[in-house]
Nucleic acid binder design. Structure first.
Length: 554
RNA sequence: UGCGAGAUUGUGUAAGGGUAGCACGAGUGACUCUGACUCACUUUGUGAGGGUUCGAAUCCUUCUCUCGCAGCCA
């Protein structure tokens, strides 16, 4: 396998400049810092690939660090899943997994240092009062009346905050910066709040927790991060990031660089909304194959290679954009098409009876697992009198240039015989129920005189081996283009829209073991979905019907 | 008339004074025992106006539009 090199982007340009100026001694150290409050999704995958990929490109290091500074939202379930997902994507972090909570003591010391410098003070304003004092986007704020407390008093109060003498919300520690700053983040931001909550790692040791804006730069600095890559919404926080580093007197401070987060067409990417889908039980869980989560993609049969290629293909920039979902599918197809067997599948089965094939008779036909990759060998599929074909492959009255089955037409059953459509039967509802054909005995694939040329080749599965429902089939959470924007998805029509969209889904296969091996398949999706039984291997992709958009394991 | 950021074809992304390129998508054709794959060709693009220059997507200037920011979330 040749090593793909990560395409260059604007962040690499910045690093190149830093390397030229030597400001980090040509060292590159990045980090992926998720908050363990949900599962990773494809958007995080972009960040993961960027951070780990950039480190690798420059021979540097990348940390996996949990930004666990808010105990009320976080849980070990999430840290476990995140570790699993990052590993699955194929990245190796430097040293062990790190936690922001490991630095709580250091952060506390930094806060004390700020207090001593007169750069932080304990404030008694309520949350609401704080908001009023903060001013608005166009009007400056007012200094808190508590900003003038003495260093001694602040030190004492902060220590008592830590000791648990105060209730949640009673006091906060604020940075003493500038209430008139045009940047709201600089208007004496809260840097420590009281929260009598059990932390998933530090338990009840602390009842005060640092805010992101204070904690994050310290985390980066402590770990020796050089380039702290984050998303666009933190642009306005950079002055504060730099302020904390400067006032806490860290040497050779890291530099924050922002990029645009990934958005996919027709997809929900907000963690809040994904969590809602899980909590409301609209999906099976975070790893429901319809979810754009890494675990959902994994369960749907996506490969890490495909996800990585996708992340590299979409590029990195500062302009907000929505990537076409088709590109993700392209990357998956590209990775799967030569590596895995392709099997026949019919999505909406219609029984087809070969009237001149004796009842009770059957034979095995040999089909290449992958016509583009002979190394994948062949498999044998049972051919018999009754088979299922897909509803799309038959029309009573074909339009021009339709060269699949219709009365009077010849078509090849892939890997087997050419058949001639004689007749068909409809049920009371006017739906096609059965199709009657005859086969040409001499046309079996592989035989010398099999060369009868027909325009159409269709997929099929033997009727006797397409039984029991063992697989469920879905596709990604796909919203119709004209349907809704992300904003009104939840708010406007509530969850109904999601239910609607889920009904429109089309395809994943979940592993299901049957007695005696995995030799029978059926997919459910608005009814039925059959697959030919003889495909073996770790993974396979669908033939034409679902194309190569999905793969499955069995 | 707060601050910050962004704008290149249907979508995403390159080119940072010198032929606007690549990928996806879409379309046409060839091939084909998967209407797949593959191959070939095609595809209304530098937000607008002014300026500097032999030459501007790129530099200057004015404007327009879009996004983010008023959590004791991250």
């Amino acid at each position: 396998m040749e090593e793909k090199t990560m395409p260059s982007n604007f962040i690499h340009n910045i690093i190149d400049q830093d390397n030229e100026s030597g400001c980090y001694q040509k060292r590159v150290h990045t980090r992926f810092p998720p908050e363990p409050n949900g599962y990773l999704h494809i958007g995080h995958a972009k960040s993961i690939c960027l951070n780990f990929g950039t480190a690798k490109k420059y021979g540097g290091k990348c940390n996996l660090r949990f930004d666990d500074t808010n105990p009320v939202k976080e849980d070990t379930e999430y840290v476990d899943s995140i570790i699993e997902d990052v590993a699955w994507l194929g990245f190796q972090w430097d040293k062990e997994v790190l936690f922001a909570s490991s630095y709580f003591d250091i952060m506390y010391d930094c806060a004390v240092k700020l207090i001593k410098k007169g750069q932080a003070y304990v404030c008694d304003l309520s949350a609401e009062e704080t908001r009023e004092y903060r001013g608005t986007l166009t009007e400056p704020g007012k200094k808190s009346p508590y900003a003038s407390r003495s260093v001694e008093e602040n030190l004492d109060l902060f220590a008592r905050m830590k000791a648990g003498e105060f209730a949640d919300g009673e006091k906060v520690l604020r940075a003493n910066i500038d209430m008139a700053s045009p940047n709201m983040n600089m208007r004496d931001p809260v840097i420590y709040r009281i929260a009598h909550a059990s932390h998933h790692r530090t338990g009840d040791k602390w009842c005060i927790y640092p805010m992101y804006d204070f904690a994050h730069p310290i985390e980066d600095a402590v770990e020796g991060i050089t380039h702290s890559i984050c998303t666009l919404e933190f642009e306005d926080h950079r002055p504060l990031y730099d302020w904390v580093l400067r006032e806490c007197e860290f040497e050779n401070p890291p530099k924050q660089i922002e990029f645009a987060r990934l958005e996919l067409t027709n997809n929900v990417m907000s963690k809040r909304k994904l969590k809602m889908l899980v909590d409301e039980k609209i999906v099976d869980g975070w790893n429901d194959p319809r979810m754009p989560t890494v675990s959902g993609l994994r369960r749907r049969g996506y490969t890490p290679e495909a996800v990585r290629t996708f992340c590299e293909t979409i590029g990195v920039s500062k302009s907000k954009s929505k990537v076409d979902y088709a590109l993700l599918e392209h990357c998956v197809r590209e990775d799967l098409k030569l590596k895995y067997p392709r099997v026949m599948a019919v999505e909406k089965p219609i029984k087809l009876i070969i009237t001149n094939y004796p009842e009770g008779q059957s034979e095995l036909v040999e089909i290449e697992n992958n016509q583009e990759n002979e190394a994948l060998g062949t498999r044998q599929v049972k051919f018999e009198r009754e088979i299922y074909i897909d509803a799309k492959d038959f029309m009573e009255q074909p339009p021009k240039k339709y060269y699949r089955l219709y009365p009077g037409n010849d078509v090849r059953l892939k890997g087997a015989y050419v058949i001639h459509c004689e007749d068909y039967k409809k049920n009371d509802q006017g739906e096609i129920e059965e199709i009657y054909c005859t086969y040409y005995p001499g046309t079996k694939s592989g035989q010398e005189n099999a060369g009868m040329k027909v325009k159409g080749v269709i997929q099929w599965v033997p009727a006797s081996e397409a039984v029991e429902a063992e697989f469920r089939l879905y596709d990604h959470l796909f919203l119709e283009p004209e349907q809704v924007t992300e904003d009104n998805l939840m708010e406007k029509d509530g969850l109904l829209l999601n239910r609607y969209s889920l009904e429109k889904t089309t395809g994943y296969v979940e592993r299901y073991a049957l007695e005696g091996g995995y030799d029978r398949f059926q997919f459910i999706r608005n009814g039925y979905f059959y697959l030919d039984k003889s495909a073996k291997g770790d993974r396979a992709v669908f033939n034409r019907t679902v194309s190569l958009k999905s793969s499955f394991k069995f």
